[in-house]
């Protein structure tokens, strides 16, 4: 204390924090901030804001139950509404009951970082699971390697379908790959001229055909083409 007496400056007192009276008068750099700084640091939880928070939380709970039980929204509507209300309730609890509004901002930074990690976890997982159906057309043969050439069943036989023209199956033409058989069928059907009949380039004509209704160009072959899309998964292809 003798040392403190010899250096009796506001800076020194604020830095050591020994003297409570001076601590509330000066900040850590020794600047005078007034006696009210003490009251700001020791925030006493107020009654009414907290009580109103409780009232709002109970009201929102009743709204959640009411909308979930008696209001029927299409699709994910009810779930989304319930979760939005839950997020509002959680934010209210964090801001008022958990004092985030009155505390140092670093606590809010921790909360936001945690919520970001939670969202990253859930959103990435949902993106993975939710987009897996995109590979199902591939597995079911709707999208195949080699474009529009695909294995279909016609008259009980596996054949290659190129833009509605059929080629013998691989086992009927030994030594040829599916792609070779498809190319052969393509040229046999008129090649680029046939593709030009569809009014498009060869590559885009492939996809264009796949997207068309099956009976648009070839009504008589419609059942076979339908069957092709539904019944011939890639895994049953002969090799």
């Amino acid at each position: 204390m003798t040392e403190q007496d010899s250096h009796d400056t506001p800076q020194h007192l604020a830095a050591t924090g020994d003297d409570l009276h001076h601590e509330e008068m000066f900040d850590n750099d020794g600047h005078f901030v007034g006696a009210h700084a003490h009251a700001e640091h020791h925030h006493v939880t107020p009654f009414m804001p907290m009580f109103m928070t409780l009232v709002i939380l109970v009201t929102l709970t009743i709204i959640t139950v009411f909308t979930a039980e008696y209001v029927h929204l299409p699709g994910f509507g009810n779930l989304a509404l319930a979760l939005i209300i839950a997020c509002i309730k959680g934010t209210l609890v964090a801001a008022f009951f958990m004092h985030l509004l009155y505390d140092k901002a670093i606590n809010t930074v921790v909360v936001i970082a945690s919520m970001f990690a939670v969202l990253l976890f859930i959103v990435l997982t949902m993106t993975d699971i939710g987009t897996r159906k995109l590979h199902e057309p591939l597995e079911s043969g709707e999208i195949v390697v080699g474009g529009g050439a695909q294995w279909v069943e016609k008259n009980g036989k596996q054949v290659v379908d190129v833009k509605g023209h059929y080629a013998p199956a691989y086992d009927a033409a030994p030594g040829k790959s599916v792609l070779d058989a498809a190319r052969e069928a393509y040229h046999a059907a008129g090649g680029h001229e046939a593709a030009a009949d569809h009014g498009d380039g060869a590559a885009s004509a492939d996809t264009g055909h796949a997207a068309e209704p099956a009976n648009a160009d070839h009504p008589t072959e419609a059942p076979a083409t339908d069957g092709a899309h539904a019944n011939t998964p890639a895994s049953t292809e002969p090799h």
Binding site: V65, L79, A82
Partner: peptide
């Protein structure tokens, strides 16, 4: 609560 009890 809403996730488990108020599904739908």
């Amino acid at each position: 609560f809403p996730m488990l009890y108020l599904v739908g």
